[in-house]
Design a protein around this nucleic acid. Sequence first.
DNA 1: AAAACCTCCAACCGCTACATG
DNA 2: TCATGTAGCGGTTGGAGGTTT
Length: 376
Amino acid sequence: MGRSPCCEKNNGVKKGPWTQEEDELLVDYITKHGYGNWRTLPKNAGLQRCGKSCRLRWTNYLRPDIKRGRFSSEEEDAIIHLHSILGNKWSAIAARLPGRTDNEIKNFWNTHIRKRLLRMGIDPVTHCPRLELLDLSSILSSSCYGNRGCGFEGCAPGGSLPRYFHGAGDNRPINTDLLKLATTLFSTQRHEYSSLSHRESCQENRPCEAQVQVDRGHLFTQSQFSGGPEGLQFGQTTEGFSQLEQTSDDWESRSGLYTTSLEEECSRVDFPSYAYCGPWDDQALLQQNIPTYDSYDGMAEGNFIYPCSPTPMNSNSNSNSNSTTTHINGSAYEDGREISYCSGDMMDELTMAPVGGAFDLSGYLGVANYCNNPLI
DNA sequence: AAAACCTCCAACCGCTACATG
DNA sequence: TCATGTAGCGGTTGGAGGTTT
């Protein structure tokens, strides 16, 4: 960017831990004059520090509204919940936890929560059970045919695998070809994922808010998901989607539909957390008996496209308001006011895919992760 | 008792977005 | 439109203090 450093190096600028005297100088100055210009503040306050250092000291430590001390269990739960929605957006998380700084939350996450989740076998990035702890071969070798139960613990006869493992009809036999394909692709994806996590890839010009929660666990075709000939643009009020996007309350109620059956599956099968929409091959999809939007009977019941989080970034977490959310040309409006669920230009306008495609499933499958819905 | 190791967190670094001239 | 300055953000580091061997 060609900018000069915030303060001249080796020019008498002190670094390292702050002394009590320095703290007092900073607090006194800001109390009297406020903090308008951090660059000139240290000189005016009589501090041998750079403005950046002063700002950090104030915002992370000296600010009077900072809540010190241990995090309560409620705060911890909130952090986990918010992290599942926002990822490493520490400032956004901090904005919803009064009195806590982004730095403090970040530290707490890295030193406590992250480790605890790992111990529990939960991937702290995806908030899903870790794939390496799961035995996918058991899926393949299980007696998941017809309606005999899939062999998973907790999946009694009459229970079901995610529907995309089956052919047409609820009592349809499992689509073994698809299962093999998925296995192969998951294996490939797993390898890629181990070297570059989704959120890491997000931080490399791939906005993590591009995550799309689509009909958790269902396959979808391009036309279902994006702007194919019969496709949907995000937010387009089309039958099957519009009813799910009327209000934020809808999201929660719809989410509730999944809390029992899919959670069971979630604990055993770890799918990519975010939908991929790359080049599609409809012929290949048809050969795999993947139901299309038009033919799939479950679509209107619980399938949806939704960006990132059901909770608007700029609102508080109380989503029980009576406000009405509508979608026009891809933008969300609440009570006539544009809201943003995520920051950044996360969607490819044409494909409605996360920009950059975090998970390349070879262009065949779009598997959304029903595990990752933080509302469950 | 002391060395080695671990944990924690304040502070720093480097980057991006935005503002301004 | 471009160059530069500023604020803010997320990742990383260094060292103090605690724990284990």
